[in-house]
């Protein structure tokens, strides 16, 4: 990613993001940055509002307040909160996966990867008109799309299963396929919602390898993860959320030892929580310790 601008400038800037559902404030005045070429982890206890942040970034929710700026390497800027849902992927080039895998299970593995290349293929088929008449370069474009799909199939080790329905794959393979599908949209920023959930140690290691490779190829990664070993191993930067508020932000090493993070995660005696919260300056109603 050799841009004309500083490669360390943020690819995603989240400023004062708030999301309210009725009376529930799920995310409260959250600001953080994802730097280009980094793997940034968003962590926090269950219900901290991580997935809500993801849904705001990827256009599924319109945030109540705040600004989400995505900067491309060529200097183009997109305000994500103003884009229609699908344009977040198509124009701003943000791709995502889902906590509960959302593959097109009745379509084959290959078809899943081709659907992800919808926009370029649509252009090649002259928005269906030329393709229907058999004119234009649709065939060549489709071959190129299949090649790209094959490249990703090789990377995730699913080439032999390309013609099997996606729903028949084992769980770990489905997770990898979902990442490959997101990557086929050629994103600038890849958002992964708990990619390691339900994986065995070997699959976890494969995933780490895959993510490193994605980073090396120039795509920035933002991930939500519960598996701390994965987070600590691959993240360049960690943002910790609790009750919709950012409580820590820094390198994995720094975050690990942060007393607020320890309190939020491990759960401590009530008095200690209160002490910690007083220290942090948090005023929360009956913030019970979460195990």
């Amino acid at each position: 990613m050799s841009g004309v601008i500083d490669p360390r400038e943020p690819v995603l800037t989240v400023e004062h993001l708030s999301m309210r559902f009725g009376g529930l404030l799920a995310v409260n005045d959250l600001s953080f940055e994802v730097r280009r070429g980094d793997i940034t982890a968003l962590i926090g206890p269950n219900g901290a509002g991580k997935t809500t942040v993801f849904n705001c970034i990827t256009g599924f929710y319109k945030p109540t307040e705040g600004r989400l700026t995505l900067a491309h390497a060529d200097g183009a800027r997109h305000l994500l909160e103003r884009l229609p849902n699908h344009a977040v992927n198509r124009r701003a080039r943000v791709a995502r996966t889902f906590q509960n895998i959302r593959l097109f299970s009745g379509m084959t593995v290959l078809e899943n990867l081709l659907v992800a290349q919808h926009a370029p293929l649509m252009r090649a088929s002259g928005f269906t008109v030329l393709g229907l008449l058999g004119l234009g370069g649709y065939r060549a474009a489709e071959r190129a799309a299949i090649e790209r799909a094959r490249l990703w199939l090789d990377r995730i080790g699913l080439t032999p299963r390309a013609d099997d329905p996606a729903g028949d794959l084992p769980y770990g393979a489905q997770r990898r396929l979902e990442i490959a599908r997101a990557m086929c949209t050629e994103p600038v920023l890849l958002c992964l919602d708990e990619p390691a959930a339900g994986l065995n140690p070997r699959e976890s290691a494969e995933l780490t390898e895959l993510l490193r490779r994605i980073r090396a190829d120039g795509t920035s990664v933002l991930l939500i993860e519960h598996d701390m070993s994965v987070v600590m191993e691959i993240s360049d930067h960690v943002v910790v959320l609790d009750y919709g508020v950012k409580i820590a932000d820094g390198t994995p090493g720094a975050v690990r030892t942060d007393p607020r993070v320890v309190a939020a995660y491990l759960g401590v005696e009530d008095e200690e929580v209160e002490a910690v919260e007083a220290e942090v300056g948090l005023v929360l109603p009956s913030a019970g310790a979460e195990a």
Binding site: F104, S105, M107
Partner: peptide, 28 residues
């Protein structure tokens, strides 16, 4: 013929999972 074109695949993808479609930049 449409089934083999991107629009046809997008239809079938839509039938399978609309939310995933939107996340892949398909204008549903």
């Amino acid at each position: 013929r449409l089934r083999r074109l991107p629009i046809g695949r997008a239809w079938e993808a839509l039938r399978e999972d609309e939310i995933a479609c939107r996340s892949l930049g398909i204008n549903t």
